[in-house]
Design a protein around this nucleic acid. Structure first.
Lengths: 114, 114
DNA sequence: GCCGATCGTTACGCAAGCGTTTCTTTTGTG
DNA sequence: CACAAAAGAAACGCTTGCGTAACGATCGGC
């Protein structure tokens, strides 16, 4: 079910969403953090630090720090993997789901306004 | 010409674009910088520091610093307004237009893949 | 010509991210 | 049981962005 966009629509959508997000939410996630958050919530678990680092093409400390920040915001949670205690499983949270739900609505509404 | 998106499509699009942008481009613009850049290129000129600050709901130094960074990357340029020399007119650049053109293509391609 | 108002920048101290390197814990294999 | 390998976190020094406050340059009304 592809979505066909003109160049003007594509950039216009990104523009409107970025603008409103900046105006509305002081939690200013970096592009990397956003990519990590969406990866966690849109791709089936389990998610590990190593896996996310490989997927994004960044180093592991980048993931650790992003999880620290977003964990402090309540957007994600971390749990030790009991089957292999070296691993950490990244868990979704209610607040994170809510955050992305609102963000999705933002995109949808701005899309309609095009 | 509205664009109708399901929640899954909206977040999926943002996910794919963020992911690829992180993987491909080391120039990691913040959401604010991106919003400023798109504002400059999508809204008819002239653009001033004060105007952008008001539009984004941020302070003037935020705009000044964003213009510094993006200026160093060649994405925007600054010129004194000769009619009122207190003002600075923000100008588009070829490189900035190219950057956004590629970014737009990224959005369009990821939209098609949905 | 003055003088308050306006515009953009700079200065300051602070918080947050980065990459690299170095632990610490845990695993599994000889 | 010893020991190398692997996962994640912590430490280090550095860079960049932030908000507030102060600053020079310029304008416009009187």
């Amino acid at each position: 079910m592809p979505v066909e966009l003109t160049p003007s629509q594509a950039l216009g959508l990104w523009h409107a969403v970025s603008l409103e997000q900046v105006q509305v939410d002081s939690r200013d996630l970096t592009l990397r953090q956003m990519a990590i958050l969406l990866e966690i919530y849109l791709v089936p678990p389990p998610h590990t630090v190593r896996g996310l680092a490989a997927k994004l093409g960044v180093t592991k400390p980048v993931i650790t720090r992003a999880l620290d920040s977003m964990g402090a915001l309540g957007l994600v949670d971390r749990v030790r993997d009991e089957r292999d205690r070296r691993n950490v499983i990244i868990k979704r949270t209610v607040e994170g789901a809510l955050y992305l739900e609102k963000f999705g609505d933002l995109i949808i509404n701005q899309g309609r306004k095009l």
